[in-house]
Design a protein around this nucleic acid. Structure first.
Length: 646
RNA sequence: GCCCACGUAGCUCAGCAGGUAGAGCACAUCCUUGGUAAGGAUGAGGUCACCGGUUCAAGUCCGGUCGUGGGCUCCA
């Protein structure tokens, strides 16, 4: 038989293994880097014989995404072997590869300790040293069930039953055998660049009603160098953790006596928020939105009518006023709908776009709270668009463009996800189809990449979510665009059509930043605390060399402020080096140094937070240079913005 | 909510076989007037998260509560 590898055509005997083929076709160096083979979309063990009908074979490199996944999966087997050896009563369940590593869930009587992890790691390394081969075999379900039951491995039976089918593959290395689809590296000696990271509880099958298992997380790479690089990256990410920088830069704090998930914004943090919110309000006004505002608490009957009382009660806080029950809002839509309903609306009034920085309270479970990223009281940049059905798609296209402009301003990487109808949902097929097509059509129309999450929509309609990535490469949902057929129905929203009859409008819930809290958390990490000039709470600080320049420094400060900048003057009796260091640690974008020289020349000496120092210049030149930096991101994004109110 | 770990001065952290607390930075006062990442001296700061228990004695052991962190489930 013939096969093409790397552009070379080889003539082969039947039963040749993939490894043998690749060894023949590739250079020694190339082959050393190969972990498994690939024929079309199928990954194959190197020890597997070449499948019939395979016309072209590829070697999968250890440092490729697919190769790393194989290494990680094999390392999880290695770990399971070590755990079974050290803790024979532990039952194995599943152990997949994940981003940057792998985990394996065990059913064991007690949690593993850090000392256990060390012992497991040592045992794994000894297995690597023994260089045991991974051997694939197949058995039918009956044999397998009795095999695993004899070992007390009850979870494997459940897995096979869920998967369905008659025959399953197994992988054995040394004493350890696991049900597994594969493929794996050839030998344990190919592994070794790994580290066990943490232990955590995890529910069997991700179901909180089922038993909690002990999960061990680890990371694994193709080389010690790559492992070190990853561990260094984790260190770096810790440095820009928004919780750490938030304290360091005096942006926000939390207090045990206030309660979990509640943020106190300090002067600098509150100023950043104000700048951000001001920008957003103006941007919305420019794009045809109306600003509206509603109260924080609304009567309980309203929440009953909307369905929130039935579907969202566990997440809500309630209170009582004059013996009437009130609910603290977890969402802003109700006020907006009542504004719509406050008078008769014509088709000419649509679309109506209502925007509010709405403060909402949600009773999130205590275990999920996380710095600014997950809190119980937060501000949404929330809008509700009410439009005619025929306007839906155009509105969505404009909306996605809006999202794109804003993300560009912050220079953010983001992922768009389209979520479709879930099993538990309401509304007609026709409504769902029209709305889903509008969302999909808008994405396609703009030529954007997106992922589809089948069945992950809200119960009232499909949605597009925007996910941002933080310093630790965790994804966070921020913006969301959700279609809703329920609320217009429940609240009987109507408009008078051209025909003089009443029609039902369509409603879109949407946010762009999502929550101001979360977005700022992500921004702090994104910029490592060094906010761009337009957002920096202090844009420039004047540093005097001695007391002699105090008066002149005050004059310079006034002139810069007159040009619209946020300026501080550090007139303290401290050495210049000390003042520079402080300003640098606070990540102030521009430092203006003033000594006798500058005072006499009527100039300033500019130092910038990173990069080359512009040096000596007139006060006016400094003001213009900083103002240009403030405007630049907007011009780059094709926007304009005036800071008149800040 | 569940599993595990943690909670000592504003911040970062020491402390121990159970015998009533320590450093650096920050802060205050004084000396110093010094050109681009920390000048010096002195001082003030803690009912060791909170509540209860064991003990002659608890920051140190045990239980509970609150909070924080890593995960699970959920989510902006």
């Amino acid at each position: 038989m013939q096969i093409v590898v790397n552009g070379k055509t080889l003539e082969l005997a039947e039963g040749t293994t993939c490894g043998e083929v690749l060894k023949e076709a590739l250079s020694k160096k190339q082959f050393k880097n190969v972990v498994v083979a690939r024929c079309e979309q199928t990954l194959l063990d190197l020890s597997a014989s070449l499948p019939t009908g395979c016309s072209e074979l590829f070697g999968v490199r250890a440092d490729s995404e697919e190769g790393l996944a194989v290494i990680r999966h094999s390392t999880s087997h290695l770990m399971a072997e070590a755990v079974k050896k050290l803790f024979p009563e532990a039952k194995v369940t599943i152990g997949p590869s994940i981003k940057d590593g792998f985990y394996y869930d065990f059913d064991y009587e007690r949690p593993f300790t850090p000392e256990d992890l060390q012992a497991i790691e040592a045992e794994m390394l000894s297995s690597v040293g023994a260089d045991k081969p991974f051997i694939r075999s197949e058995m039918n379900i009956k044999e397998l069930v009795s095999l695993f039951e004899a070992q007390g491995e009850s979870y494997k039976t459940e897995i096979m039953q869920d998967l369905g089918g008659e025959n399953f593959s197994l992988y054995t290395h040394g004493e350890f055998t696991d049900l597994c689809r594969g493929p794996h590296v050839e030998r344990t000696g190919k592994l070794g660049a790994f580290k066990l990271l943490s232990v955590a509880g995890a529910y069997w099958r991700g179901d909180e009603k089922k038993k909690q298992l002990q999960r061990i997380y680890g990371t694994a790479w193709d080389s010690p160098k790559a492992l070190k690089k990853y561990l260094d990256r984790l260190e770096e990410a810790k440095k820009r953790d928004h919780r750490k920088l938030g304290t360091q830069l005096d942006i926000f704090s939390t207090h045990e006596e206030i309660g979990g998930g509640m943020i106190l914004w300090h002067p600098k943090g509150a100023l950043i928020r104000a700048i951000l919110e001001d920008f957003e309000k103006k941007e919305h006004l420019k794009r045809g939105y109306d600003l509206v505002q509603g109260p924080l608490i609304l009567k309980r009957e309203l929440w009953e009518k909307s369905g929130h009382y039935d579907n969202y009660r566990e997440n809500m806080y309630f209170t009582e006023i004059d013996e009437a029950a009130y609910g603290i809002k977890p969402m802003n839509c109700l006020s907006h709908m009542l504004i719509y309903k406050s008078k008769i609306r014509s088709y000419r009034d649509l679309p109506m776009r209502m925007f509010e920085h709405g403060i909402v309270h949600r009773h999130e479970k205590s275990g999920v709270l996380h710095g600014l990223m997950r809190v119980r009281s937060f501000t949404q940049d929330d809008a509700h668009l009410i439009c005619r059905p025929d306007q839906l798609q155009a509105e969505i296209i404009t909306l996605i463009g809006f999202v794109r402009d804003i993300m560009k301003l912050f220079d953010f990487d983001y992922v768009l996800e389209l979520s479709t109808r879930p099993e538990k949902s309401i509304g007609s097929d026709e409504d769902w189809e029209r709305a889903t097509n509008s969302l999909r059509g808008a994405l396609d129309n703009l030529g954007l990449d997106y992922r589809v999450n089948e069945g992950d929509g809200a119960f009232y309609g499909p949605k597009i979510d925007v996910h941002l990535v933080d310093a630790l490469e965790r994804g966070w949902q921020c913006g969301t665009i959700q279609c809703d057929f329920t609320l217009p129905e429940r609240f009987d929203l109507v408009y008078v059509g051209e025909d003089g009859k009443q029609h039902r409008p369509v409603m879109i819930h949407r946010t762009i930043l999502g929550s101001i809290e979360r977005f700022l958390g992500i921004l702090i990490e994104h910029y490592a605390g060094a906010f761009p000039a337009w957002l920096a709470p202090v844009q420039a600080r004047i540093l005097t060399v001695t007391d002699e320049q105090k008066e002149y420094a005050e004059q310079v400060k006034q002139r810069l402020e007159a040009s619209g900048l946020r300026v501080e003057a550090d007139l303290r009796n401290e050495k210049l080096g000390y003042k520079v260091r402080e300003a640098q640690v606070e990540k102030i974008p521009y430092m203006l140094i003033i000594g006798d020289k500058e005072k006499e020349a009527g100039s300033v000496n500019m130092r910038i937070r990173q990069g080359e120092d512009p040096g000596l210049m007139t006060v006016e030149a400094a003001a213009e240079l900083i103002n240009a930096a403030v405007r630049k991101p907007f011009l780059d994004g094709g926007m304009s913005y005036s800071f008149s109110t800040i």
